[in-house]
Every structure is written in structure tokens, then in C-alpha cells.
Nucleic acid binder design. Structure first.
Lengths: 205, 205, 205, 205
DNA sequence: AATGAATGAGCGTTCATTCAT
DNA sequence: AATGAATGAACGCTCATTCAT
């Protein structure tokens, strides 16, 4: 039956995503996948012709959830820094929630996100998608700055595009440190760090 | 002979550093080490009691080269942004040169630096060292900003500590993107990106 | 097919039993198992998750054959020493035959039985089973003495339990010497020694 | 210097004996020997040309201590079972003390005595010595029985040689069970078991 | 007499993948 | 659609031994 097959496929994807984010692509074995899915090796190979195929599919599956907000317009007007922060944090929370929803009740840590990304970075197709996504994030930030600029002269003489890229880089740096220095994969830690970074950003500009 | 032993040890460390940076810790096997060193498995184990021990030693070996500038004062006065940039880029170039010197003639790519770091992040001792090093980098930047502030009113009303941390985060983000998006490990690419990031930073503040 | 799988499993067990008895657990390598079974390393690991698991399974497999007589009653009346000896030797022969049957055509030596036992002695579960088995052997002997006592006044005033334990110890000592002094693993040598020990036992009581 | 060399040799032998008895020959590595002796690999190879050579030498070294009582006459008259037991237990204690003295202050467990013996059993020379030693033990027991027979009619009609061999076998069996079932290597446990076995023996004859 | 550098075979185990059913 | 038996290469690591010093 079509539905049964799809259901199996999705359940494999959920488990794979869960595991890739927790342990990193390389450290997830078919043994792990079998244990978590309750399926057989053959069943997984039936749905995904290799581990790499599973990776690609999992990534695309992840994007379905996290991505939706990426191309979006900031929903509301941005009158001041406070609302700027709120918009940004909410969009991030939305991404987290999207992924959590995708995975159902399973609690998710993002400990090894980078090592999920590492695997991605060696796959041309996935790299292009990722690059595009990052650009979308910058564009989103740029739009936010454009809106903010209308209501404040804080940003006077500053290029929203440059502001956006700078903030984006700071946020990337923040995430990197969170992984390597704090070794955390908790959503709340991410949010806290985003807040701190935004505060610093608005202090220096 | 003592010297011969040390020589072997160092040659293993050089090869290990080279390989860890190129392929990442996990993906370097003893097979690789044997091929590159020309030594036997037993010989490597004679010098380093485990792969983890080799990692720690390699990291410490790397620090001997890259680190020296870390605790340093910026050497000259910093009168303007141009000299700020020069000081920073020179310090980075110095770090690169230190590592290249350490490795002798071997060409070095930093393709998998992050996955060297990943292994590091799972070793408490190494994480502490790394964290300390990153702090030193921020302090170095802060000192630069303090000096720059004396000669320009560009930074008026801005906290050098916050400026330092913000720039640091941007630089980290830059490096992250370089690895994942550009997939580059070339020194020249790093320098180019550092320059670009510094330019953007001074545009927005 | 289920049967094929079971067949493979059993053929591994037979080879393992053969090798453990011949060389001792520690000295049997996967190399040996591969050579004798004609299977791949992976196949063996597919059926037994570790060498220790293989040991435990092999032991249980051995018991299926050798054990059956252990809990048994002596079948016939024991009127005199001659029939006592016959009963005992027959039960021992039965154990040997059981194992030989289990292993099919393969010739079996028990050269390193003790070093099979050694491995067993370090596994709590197996030790408990072994201890229980040894108790059963003593109980079997005790029952024989009780029957014998009815027909002869040779044992007058002697506790069948103590007689049983004493004979049991002598037989254990006999086996030990057979292994270490004679270095034999032949069934016929065992039988010969059992006979001799029984003779001596009935001389001294 | 002669003495210094001998001293080193003996200190290696002590450590080797200690380790062989504790872990069994096969499980003692040069790494262990180096750690315990504080000497280098080369030094040990200088004194003993192989691990087998070390085994042989260690065995001979052991005999110097434990053996002395072996060929001896029972010192006193044996008037009754009580004095028989005392003579035997004392001779065993003497053997233990001899070994303990040999090893100096080091506490000694005999956990793997059998696996020391196993290694021995594969060496023809050592097997001959061991066989001879065991015979000596039987002869010692026989002498004891001969003396006892003079003072009691308990043994009337019984051959001291057969009595000796039977008791010897029971004692061997006792030791075997101590190792495999009780997994003990404590002197006190040996003594306790010897006592129990002797009691049983005199009950049945 | 003693050091420790180096060898290379071997160990138990895990891995992604294939395939007959 | 799904199972799990089987493969064989690779993994990190330990071993007894040799040898130049």
C-alpha cells in the first residue's frame, strides 16, 4: 500500500534526522538506524539506496520544516530594536519548532549539527542548497534592517545589506562557539546566545 | 639516540597535524599515518600510546607554533583603521607562517580544521586550552581597539570589549562559512575573507 | 530461510566447541573460526555478537549433549562394585558419545578442556551452571552409593554423601593429571583412568 | 658486577612468578613485566632470551622454594590421624611460606596457578620436572601412611601406596575445584580445603 | 648491563553494502 | 515491502621479538 510505504519512509527519515543531529553523519551506523526504527537493514536499503542517499533525503526532509520561514517576509512592522529582536528570535524559534514538530514527540538536541553539515558540505547538491539557504537568511535580515531604518535614524548612513551580512556572520560565530566551547545542543541555549549577540550588535553600530 | 627518537616523534606529529587538518581526526587512520610517516604501526604506538594521545600531542604541538602571537601585545601604535587592519592581518599571517614553518616543506590545507576541533571539543583538557586561546584572541582585539580609540573618535561611546567580541564573532562566522560554503583551506582565501570582514565591520560601526 | 540460518549457527557452534576444547578459549581466534567454518568474520559476528557470546552459546550447546545424563537416576540396580563401575563408566561414555554425536564426524580431543573451563570460570553465568552440574555429578554418585549399600556391607557405617564427594574429588584429580601430566585428550585414556581411579577407591574404603 | 646482575635477574624472576601466578603465563605481557620490574624490555631480554625461557627459569626458581620439603621425610612420628593431618598441613604451609619468602614482602595470590601449569605442560622439560614433583608428593604421603599404620589398625589391610595415591587425587581435585568453583587464590582457603578433604578421606577409609 | 626504537603479525570488533528469499 | 544472512575491508590496538646503541 502506498501510504504504508510512505509512512515507513518518513519514520526512517525522522530517526535518521534525529541521529544525524545527535551524533553526526559519520557516527550513525545502520545498527543505530535499525535499533531506533525497529526495521531491518534490508528495509532501510529498500527505501534509500545508500547512506549518502539517506543523508540527502534527510536533509531535504529537514528543509521542509525549517525552511518555510526562510524565504518569508518579516510579518510585522519593525519600529525599534526591541521589535527587531522579537521578530528575529521568533523566526528562529519557528525554525526550532518546525523541526521538533517534524520529529513528533522526540526531544531533539542539535549537538552535532556541524557534523551533519560537514557531510553535507561534501555533497555538491546539498552544498548549493545550503548556500542558498544561508543567503535567504541574510536577505531576511536585510529586509528587517530596511524596515527598521524607516523608523529610526540609528542606522543612518549604513547599508542594510552590510548590516545584514555582519549580523549574520556574528550569529554564525555565536553558533560555532556554542557548539565547540559550550558543547550545548539545547534550544534554550541557542535563544539565549542569539539574544546576547543581538544586544552586542546594536551596541556597536 | 635521544635525538633520533625526538626526530621520529616530531615527524609523526607533523604528519598527524597535516592529516588531521586535511581529513579531520576521525577520518585519519593508522593506515594513513603509516603511509605518510613510512613507519610501522608499532613505532607510532611506541611514541603515542593511543590515537587520542596523538591528538592531544598534536594539538599541543600546533599551539607551539600558532600560539606565540596569541598572548602578545599589538606591536605598534594603531592610528587608524588601515593600521588596525594591517596589525590584525599580520598577526593572522604570523600564525599561518608559524604552522607552515613547523611543518617544513609540506604544503598545508586547513580543509577540516573544524573536525580537528570537533575531536578537540570532546577532550576536556583540549577544550579548556582552546577556550583560553579564543579568549586571548578577543583580548588581543580589545587591546587593538583601545589603541585605535586614542587616535580616532570613530569609536566614541563604544566599549572596546564589546567591539572586540563582536568582531571576533564575525571572524568566527567568516571562517565557518569559508569551510562549509567555499570548502577552502587555503591561506590566501582566509586572508581575503578576513579583509572583507574587517571592511564590513568598520562600515557598520 | 530459517533453517539455513540455524544450520549456519550450529555449524559455527560445532567448530567453536571443537576449537575451544582443542586449543582453549583464549587461543582460538576468529581467524581459526573462519578457516574451520569457511564463513566470513562478518557472518560469525552476525550470529554471535562477540567472542564471549560465542563462548556462552557454545557452552550451552555442549550442555545439551553432555548434560542429559547429569540429572538422571542410575538406571539399574547396583548389586556390587562391578555393576557400580559399569554404571559410572557407562554414564561417562554416554557423555562422550553425546558430545561426539553433537559434533558429527569431527574427531574430538579434549586437550584443553580446562582452558575452556577457565574462560567459563570468569563468566558468572557459566560458573553458576558449571557449579550446578558438578553438584549433579556428586548427587549421581551418592545415589549409586545408596543403592550399592543395600546389597553389600562394604559401605557399612559410611556416609554415602561423603563417599560420593570423595570419589568425585578423586575423579577430578584424575582428570587434572590426565591433562597436565599425560597431556591427553583421548576418550579412551579418560575411560582407562576412570577405571583405575574407581579400582583404587574401592581398595581403600 | 656479578652481584648486581644476579640481583636484577632475581628481581625479574620474582616479578614474573608473581605475575604468572596472578594472571597466568599467556596473559602476562612484557608491558606488565616492565611496569612491575621498572626495567626496560631490553634488560629483560638480556637476562632471558624469550618469554618461554623466562617461564622455565621462573619455574625452576619456584621449585627452589617450594620443593625443599618435597623430597623430605615426615619429621616426626605419626601416631594418629590428628598428627597425620598436622604433618601434612604443616608441609603445605611450609610450601606456601617458602614461596612467600622467595617473593619478599609481596602478597601473593595463586589465582592462576593452573594456567601457569598449563604453560608448563607444553614444555617437555618442565613437564618431566612437574611429574617428578607430583610423584614426590605421593611418596611423601605414602611415607606418612606407613608411619601411621604402625600405630593404628585403622589402615589394616590397606596398601599405603594406594592410600597415598587416592588421597593425592582427592587433594588435586580439591585444588581444581577451589580454582574453578570458588575462584580463590588465598592461602587460607587452600588450608581450609585441605583440612576438609583430609577429614573426608579418613571418614571413608 | 641496559635502553628503548622499531617491526609486523595478529587481535576482537564495526562498517556499509549486496542479495536471495 | 521487507527480512536478515553473508561479505570483506577497515578500524584501533597489543604482542613478542630484534637490534643498534
Amino acid at each position: 500500500m502506498r501510504n504504508a510505504s510512505l509512512h515507513t519512509r518518513v519514520s526512517i527519515l525522522k530517526v535518521a534526522l534525529q541521529l544525524f543531529l545527535k551524533k553526526g553523519y559519520k557516527d550513525v551506523s545502520y545498527q543505530d538506524l535499525i535499533k531506533e526504527t525497529g526495521l531491518s537493514k534490508g528495509a532501510i536499503y529498500h527505501h534509500f539506496k545508500s547512506k549518502e542517499d539517506l543523508l540527502v533525503s534527510t536533509f531535504e526532509f529537514l528543509l521542509e520544516a525549517a525552511n518555510q520561514s526562510a524565504g518569508m517576509e518579516p510579518e510585522k512592522e519593525i519600529k525599534d530594536i526591541k521589535s527587531f529582536k522579537k521578530i528575529f528570535i521568533d523566526s528562529k524559534k519557528g525554525q526550532f519548532k518546525g523541526v521538533q514538530k517534524l520529529l513528533g514527540t522526540k526531544i531533539l538536541k542539535f549537538n552535532k549539527l556541524l557534523f551533519f553539515l560537514e557531510a553535507i558540505s561534501e555533497n555538491i547538491k546539498l552544498r548549493k542548497i545550503t548556500t542558498e539557504l544561508l543567503k535567504q537568511e541574510i536577505i531576511f535580515l536585510e529586509k528587517c534592517f530596511i524596515r527598521l531604518k524607516k523608523h529610526t535614524n540609528l542606522l543612518k548612513g549604513k547599508d542594510p545589506a552590510v548590516l545584514a551580512e555582519s549580523l549574520f556572520l556574528m550569529l554564525q560565530g555565536t553558533e560555532l562557539l556554542l557548539f565547540f566551547v559550550n558543547n550545548s545542543g539545547q534550544e534554550e541555549d541557542f535563544i539565549k546566545m542569539y539574544n546576547k549577540t543581538l544586544d552586542e550588535f546594536f551596541k556597536i553600530i
